[in-house]
């Protein structure tokens, strides 16, 4: 059991939408869990079962109709720089050069130009993008733009990092490379990560803990004790396969 104080707690949170035809829909029912510093929590579930809703609530981009989210023991009332987000869609600003994108968070928080460009270049180096620091985003591939998004969120140095299927639209090899990039940065910085995915393999590759969301409820909350860093071999062990089987069952595969 973790004796540390939780950095993030989701207490009895429910989110309701009203569809355009007027009928209500419950995206989250009564969800509670705590996240401790340094954890890499994967939120696993199928599309439309509330994963993204949960992440948006934690990010402060969506309001709840019941319960509350607390970050470092303060209630979340809106978005803030203490929770960095890597979005599902491409959110790199096309009108800023790559390094300006990475420095954007520092800029709006009034860090001097020299200092923020130094930090931006440092983070671009961490994701192997130094040669394209002065390029426009349109000149980059989707995978490179995802690296920009990772560099940007780490440059802003939030204690909590939220990722919403950030690699969903990328090809398999690129996705695997970026998982490694993100995992390495997480280990180096010790940040707390909440990572939404529908991909069981991805969750098993990255998470120190997997929370399965099914139909707006938490179906399972598992600590993953597989060694880190992980390889395909780890998942191919009897223990790994049993876990995969359990997770697939929990997200709805009979």
């Amino acid at each position: 059991m973790n004796t540390q104080e939780a950095i993030l707690s989701v207490n009895d949170v429910g989110v309701r939408f009203v569809r355009t035809d007027g009928t209500p829909a419950e995206a989250l029912r009564r969800v509670s869990f705590k996240v401790f510093p340094g954890e890499f929590v994967c939120i696993l579930g199928r599309s439309g079962h509330g994963k993204t809703t949960l992440l948006n609530v934690v990010a402060g981009l969506l309001s709840v109709h019941r319960g509350e989210v607390r970050v470092m023991d303060r209630p979340v009332t809106g978005p803030g720089a203490d929770r960095g987000v890597i979005f599902q869609q491409d959110a790199v600003f096309p009108w800023m050069r790559v390094e300006e994108n990475v420095a954007f968070g520092l800029r709006v928080r009034s860090v001097s130009k020299q200092e923020r460009l130094r930090i931006a270049r440092e983070h671009l180096a961490l994701v192997n993008l130094t040669p394209v620091a002065r390029a426009w985003p349109r000149e980059l591939s989707g995978g490179m733009r995802a690296r920009v998004a990772i560099a940007a969120v780490f440059a802003n140095d939030p204690p909590i990092l939220l990722a919403d299927e950030p690699f969903g639209s990328l090809d398999y090899v690129t996705r695997r490379q970026l998982q490694t990039v993100l995992h390495d940065l997480w280990r180096q910085t010790g940040k707390t990560v909440l990572f939404v995915t529908h991909d069981v393999d991805e969750a098993m590759m990255l998470g120190t803990r997997i929370i399965v969301v099914n139909n707006g409820n938490i179906a399972e909350d598992l600590a993953i004790n597989l060694p880190i860093p992980r390889s395909d071999d780890v998942i191919a062990t009897p223990e790994g396969l049993a876990l995969k089987h359990l997770l697939l069952h929990q997200i709805g595969l009979e």
């Binding site: 402060g60 720089a81 960095g84 600003f93 009108w95 954007f104 968070g105 709006v108 928080r109």
Partner: peptide, 29 residues
């Protein structure tokens, strides 16, 4: 202007004025 640009600006701590200047103005130009 895609919603995600506003969301990204808000989650790095941008004020309304900063969003106007750094997101809305260049995005609509």
């Amino acid at each position: 202007v895609p919603r995600v640009y506003f969301d990204r600006a808000a989650t790095v701590g941008a004020s309304r004025a900063a969003i106007f200047r750094h997101v809305i103005l260049p995005a609509i130009f």
